[in-house]
Amino acid sequence: MDASMIQYLPHDFPPEFIHQLPNGSYVHIGMFNVFGPDANCTLDLCPIEWSVYQYRPMLGVNIMFIVLYALLLAVHAYLGWRWRSWWFAGFMASGCLFEILGYAGRVQLFYNPWNFSAFLTQAVCITSAPVFFTASIYVTLSKAIEFFSPQSSRMPARLFYWFILADIICLALQGSGGALSTLTSGVSQEGIDLSMAGLVLQVIVLVVFCGLFIDFMVRYLRRVRRLRPDVPMRDVVGPTQELFFGMLSVAFLFILGRCIYRVDELSEGYLGSARITNERLYISLEGLFIVFAVIALCIGHPGFGFRESEKAKLRSAHVQLNLVEDDGMELEFSPARDQDAAQRV
């Protein structure tokens, strides 16, 4: 379209929807499909403002995330083999793999911001990956309750596995929302609502779990002080356990903060949203928050938290507690039960 044709456009046609090409001719947004599987815009024909994110993802930053998650995947695979913590390692490896696929999609968006398959790949994978990380936390902390003091928990430790079921529901909702958005070229409000429901449910589950675990720790420490005020706290919760719980708490808070951010980000949907166009905020609250959480879960690995050298020391203190409370009957610890605490995670 040459300059003379512009006069035939409607008078209220937004000027930001008109673009001049390097050869001097003009195009307008109505000439292209700018979103969906049939999108035909390219960087040669359309301005970046016509893409869903209105920016080209930073190439170097997204490659950095791919490299970081590949390294973290290798570390968690090694630690899982080293400590035989297969469930924990499996969840962590799956989450890292999802992150790698997601950021690979963002690398593709750098070269073509209208690549719809790349958009959906990164949207579904990066949104869903933290579900696997929270599942690893649920497994680990349920085992920690069994290890330290099942009597101090208001609910049996095995019931904490229901949080993993809730995680699966979150994953299904987020995946279904992404699939529906794919089928409807991203314009389906139902797809956005499903993804939003998955994220909101994930936040609720995280908050409930956090409350239950804080309640357990408070009851446990009170029980220790009530039964054996002469036992130093370091003999009940050793330094590696302090690091273990501290790093799990750090990871938990990073994931929770990220989920709250994603709920707010998706609240306006994909098309015409001002909330999804801030890449620096995305890098900080999505990218870095989850990287920090995965690193914290390396440091707070259950293999470190339940080492044999620590178990003997802790078992001695706990058996004394049981002797006081249970009139000589040791209920919490037995050699068969605690033989491989780290391996069962």
Results as ranks from 00 to 15, higher is better:
Met1Cys: 15
Asp2Glu: 14
Asp2Lys: 15
Ala3Tyr: 08
Met5Asp: 12
Ile6Cys: 05
Gln7Ile: 12
Gln7Arg: 14
Pro10His: 08
His11Trp: 06
Pro14His: 07
Pro14Thr: 05
Pro15Arg: 09
Gln20Met: 15
Pro22Gly: 12
His28Pro: 00
Ile29Ser: 10
Asn33Lys: 11
Phe35Glu: 01
Gly36Ser: 06
Asp38Lys: 11
Ala39Tyr: 00
Asn40Ser: 02
Cys41Pro: 08
Leu45Glu: 09
Tyr55Met: 03
Arg56Ser: 12
Pro57Trp: 00
Met58Val: 11
Met58Ser: 15
Leu59Val: 01
Ile63Arg: 00
Ile66Tyr: 03
Ile66Ser: 05
Ile66Thr: 04
Ile66Arg: 07
Tyr69Leu: 05
Ala70Cys: 04
Leu71Thr: 09
Leu72Val: 07
Leu79Arg: 13
Arg82Asn: 07
Arg82Met: 03
Arg84Ser: 10
Arg84Trp: 03
Ser85Asn: 10
Ser85Gln: 02
Trp86Asp: 02
Phe88Glu: 02
Ala89Gln: 06
Phe91Gly: 06
Ser94His: 05
Ser94Asp: 04
Leu97Trp: 06
Leu101Ile: 15
Tyr103Thr: 02
Gln108Ile: 00
Leu109Tyr: 02
Tyr111Pro: 00
Trp114Arg: 00
Ala118Gln: 01
Phe119Lys: 03
Leu120Ile: 14
Pro130Arg: 06
Pro130Ile: 06
Phe132Thr: 03
Phe148Gln: 09
Phe148Trp: 10
Arg154Trp: 04
Pro156Gly: 09
Arg158Tyr: 06
Leu159Trp: 14
Phe160Cys: 03
Tyr161Trp: 04
Tyr161Met: 13
Phe163Arg: 03
Ile164Gln: 04
Ile164Ala: 03
Asp167His: 05
Ile169Phe: 11
Leu173Thr: 07
Ser176Gly: 13
Ser181Thr: 08
Ser181Glu: 13
Ser181Val: 01
Val187Tyr: 13
Ser188Phe: 06
Gln189Glu: 09
Gly191Ala: 11
Ser195Asp: 02
Ser195Val: 01
Ala197Gly: 12
Ala197Cys: 07
Gly198Val: 06
Gly198Phe: 03
Gly198Ala: 09
Ile204Val: 15
Ile204Trp: 10
Leu206Trp: 07
Leu206Ser: 12
Val208Asp: 07
Phe209Pro: 01
Phe209Arg: 00
Cys210Leu: 08
Gly211Ala: 14
Leu212Asn: 02
Asp215Met: 05
Phe216Leu: 05
Met217Glu: 12
Val218Lys: 12
Asp230Met: 10
Val231Gly: 01
Asp235Ile: 09
Val236Ser: 13
Gln241Ala: 12
Glu242Ala: 08
Phe244Arg: 07
Phe244Asn: 04
Phe245Leu: 14
Gly246Phe: 12
Leu248Cys: 12
Phe254Lys: 00
Arg258Ala: 04
Tyr261Leu: 07
Glu265Ser: 10
Leu266His: 03
Tyr270Lys: 06
Ser273Asn: 11
Thr277Ser: 14
Glu279Gly: 03
Arg280Phe: 01
Arg280Ser: 11
Leu281Gly: 11
Ile283Tyr: 14
Val294Leu: 04
Ile295Glu: 02
Ile295Leu: 15
Cys298Ala: 13
Ile299Asn: 05
Ile299Phe: 04
Gly300Arg: 00
His301Phe: 11
Pro302Ser: 02
Glu308Cys: 06
Glu308Asp: 13
Arg315Leu: 00
Ala317Gln: 10
His318Leu: 11
Gln320Met: 12
Glu325Gln: 11
Glu325Ser: 05
Asp327Val: 13
Asp327Lys: 15
Glu330Tyr: 01
Leu331Met: 14
Glu332Cys: 00
Ser334Leu: 03
Asp338Trp: 05
